[in-house]
Simulated assay, not measured.
Amino acid sequence: MSAFGTVFMPEMALARFEDNQWTPTEFVPSDSLTLHPGAHVLHYASTCFEGLKAFRHADGSVNIFRMDANIRRMEQSTQLLNLPAFDQAQLREMIIEGVRRFADQVPDAPGSMYIRPTHIGTDAAIGKAAAPSENSLLYVLLSPVGDYFAGGGKALTLLLEENGMRCAPHMGVVKSGGNYASALGPILSAKAEYDADQVLFCPNGDVQETGAANFLLIDGDEVITKGLDSTFLHGITRDSILTIARDMGMTVSERDLTVDELIERASKPGAEAALSGTAAVLTPVGRLIRHGKVINVGTEQTFEKTVKLRRALNEVQWGQAEDKHGWLTPVA
């Protein structure tokens, strides 16, 4: 089986911002782009992207999950990177029409069609280190993907990093490639030295996020996660899981969480921890590593509430439960 996100549909939707206006959307081959070697994105990281999914329901219909929330977040990233503003309606139609064209390639649940809108600065100007790109390119890739848990969803081990940050504090809210690049070194070091799966960035003891996912602590019927600010990514899956938790009658606490409180609560019997993201939805965390010491999360590690929350969200995505919050957009 091909690795997640390595198979692409043969065409992608594309639009360019040139001469102070957006071109009409066109569908072009998805195997290449032509960029000047001096393109702003290649030197000054003027790039942002989104990740969302379309799902096939049992009745054969295809539905995109939380598309409008992803478009709003991409608009925010675009603004904070000072890229040319795009028309939300145009991007919406690029996504819908792309999925519609390849609706027959959307896998049955638990598989899905992964959707990757991308916005990059294209000015050929290597002297613009302190100036934005006036021209840009917006495109939407489609990639059919299988079940993230096909090989068994093992609990993750996280190394707590209390000194460094995932990225610059004012950039945390931007879904930009540079943020992932800056986290890669610490992640690889954690894997090599501690056999950890990810790094949980906790600068000055403030529990934030991992290199590619939001972090949640589940203590009894309470879900605790950092309150929204500019230092970390505002995950759409995070928001969805918290909404479902509230629907289930759980208490959701969006607030600062210190490493000391995390260790104290995570060590209790029945405690759970999880990472939320588009690919895996909600993945259990079984171990934390701090100062070389391994701390087991909970005791029995059945991950009952994590699995329950993930299943509840999947059932909405797969059309097996009521879409009470209007998260699905039918396209075919």
Rank of each mutant, 00 (worst) to 15 (best):
I95T: 11
Q79Y: 13
R116P: 02
A69N: 12
D87N: 14
A89I: 10
Y114T: 03
D59W: 01
A109E: 08
D104S: 15
R66N: 06
R92C: 12
P117W: 05
M113P: 02
S112I: 03
A58V: 11
L91W: 01
G98K: 03
D108Q: 14
I120V: 15
A89M: 13
S77D: 07
A54S: 11
Q79N: 13
I71H: 08
N70R: 00
V62A: 00
A109I: 11
M74H: 01
Q105T: 13
D108G: 09
N63G: 03
S112P: 01
H57Y: 11
M74V: 04
E93V: 14
S77F: 04
I95G: 03
I96A: 14
A69S: 14
I96R: 15
D108H: 10
R72Q: 15
I120G: 03
A89F: 07
R100I: 10
A103D: 10
I120C: 07
K53A: 05
D87R: 12
T118A: 12
D104K: 14
P117S: 06
R100E: 12
F55N: 08
H57E: 07
H119F: 05
P107S: 12
E75W: 11
Q105Y: 12
G60D: 09
A85T: 10
I120H: 06
A58S: 13
A54W: 02
F102N: 12
A69I: 01
A58R: 12
A103Q: 13
I71N: 08
P84G: 06
P117A: 11
I64P: 02
D104L: 13
Q79A: 15
N70H: 15
D104H: 15
V106S: 08
M67E: 11
S112H: 00
I115D: 05
G60H: 01
Q88N: 15
P107E: 10
Q105N: 12
N70Q: 09
R116H: 11
Q90S: 11
